[in-house]
Each structure stands twice: as structure tokens, then as C-alpha cells.
Computed example of a mutant assay.
Amino acid sequence: MVDIVVCDDHHLILSGIQTLLSDDADLNVVATARDGETALRHIQHHRPDIALVDVSMPGLDGLGVLARINQHGWPVRVVLLSATISDSQIVEAIAGGVAGIVLKDMASTTLIECLRKVARGGRWLPQHLVASAVSRRRVEEREISPFDSLTRREWEVTRLLAEGKANRDIAAELAISPGTVKIHLHSIYSKLGADNRTAVALMVARHGSAGSSSDG
């Protein structure tokens, strides 16, 4: 017998899941909840095999429940249920060791199959969801640069600084005054969260040479 705690803030969905699982002799719903905090109390008390939790709920959501279970080290496997789930939520769920992800528009038999597989120690992570989410996040991460907030002139100063040039040399090359270079450096340090020239140079080395396209 597989003991399950079910949590969804929509009463009709919660009742429907409970009815669906009650028809299966091997799946036993030991408690239901309509919010994450209540679900955690049930999980702590019943120590079920599986927690089936809605991703999007007011207050503590499904990912929050997953994180708290990990913090407590409870041996319960989490299956997330959702109408829609974003790439960032999928990536966070996988990083948190989620055992399964099921979309609400999937057939009811899919949920049963998922729960059975998870109960046997497997994972139910639909390839079309996971692969596309991870791929898109990787692209987004490559496109995000710490230098995106810099103006074009600030990036020029940053590039020359990373080449080891002194303020007076930067000023001469950009045809601006050394005082203006200092003003740009102050802004650059603030935007990048850097304390000094060396820190900025290391950031340039670490993140490559992609500069800002902002005007200024």
C-alpha cells in the first residue's frame, strides 16, 4: 500500500484526485490539504510515501513544500501537479530532487502511472517538458551578462581597464578627461558590485567580451 498526502488549493480538483485514487487498491490517501503549511503538518504526522502537491498555491507553494521537506530530511517523495509550469519552476524542481511532474490536462491514467512508478523508486519527468525547459534556461543564462546594465561608454572604459590601462591612458584613448573616467568607474563599480579594478578585470575574464548595447 502506497500512502499519499494530496495538496491542492482548488476544492474540486482535490476532491477529484481523492476520488480517482480511492478507486485504486494500492494507493491510499492518508490526508488532504488546501495549503502548503497544512500539507507539511500532515506529512510530518503521517510520513507518507508520496506527497502530491500543486505547484501554484497561495502562501507556501509546491516548490516551497519540496524545499521544506528537503530541509527536514523527510523520506517522502514529491510529485508536483500543475496546470502550467514555467521553465524556472521545472529547473528548480529538478534541482530539489522532485520525483515527478504531472500536468493537470494529462489523462487521469497518467497520474496513476506516475504515482506507481514513483512508489517503486523511479522518477516521472516528461522528457518534452524537462528537455525543453533545461535547454531554454541554458540559452537564457548564456545571454545574461553582468555587463548588460552598463552604457556603451561604461563598457568601453571597462574593456580598457581589463586590458590593464591606467586612468590617464583610458582618458586619452576615449578622448575624455581623467575626471570623467573616475566618474564612469564609480558607476561601473556600483552596477557590477565590484570593489576595485582587479575585481572588474576578473569579471571580464570570467564572462567573456560581450559588451553592452545600451546607449550612453
Rank of each mutant, 00 (worst) to 15 (best):
R123Y: 12
T110G: 05
L63R: 09
H184K: 02
A93Q: 08
M106T: 13
T32G: 15
D26F: 03
W74F: 01
G100P: 02
T84D: 15
L202K: 06
R136H: 03
R138S: 08
P146W: 04
T180K: 10
L14Y: 11
D148F: 09
T38A: 15
I94Q: 07
A175R: 05
E113T: 04
V65I: 12
V200I: 10
S22R: 14
G211R: 04
A205T: 04
A194V: 01
G64S: 06
K165Q: 10
R41Y: 11
G122Y: 04
V29W: 00
I43M: 12
D49R: 14
R77I: 05
N167H: 08
V76Y: 00
A162K: 07
T158S: 09
R123P: 10
G211F: 03
L20Q: 07
L202P: 00
L27N: 05
E173P: 00
D3V: 11
R47L: 15
N167M: 02
S214W: 10
H72S: 08
D54C: 11
S177C: 05
P48C: 02
L20R: 05
S212F: 09
S22N: 15
R34F: 11
G64Q: 08
A205E: 13
E173N: 03
V78D: 00
A99L: 07
A93R: 04
I17K: 07
D24H: 13
E156W: 04
A199T: 09
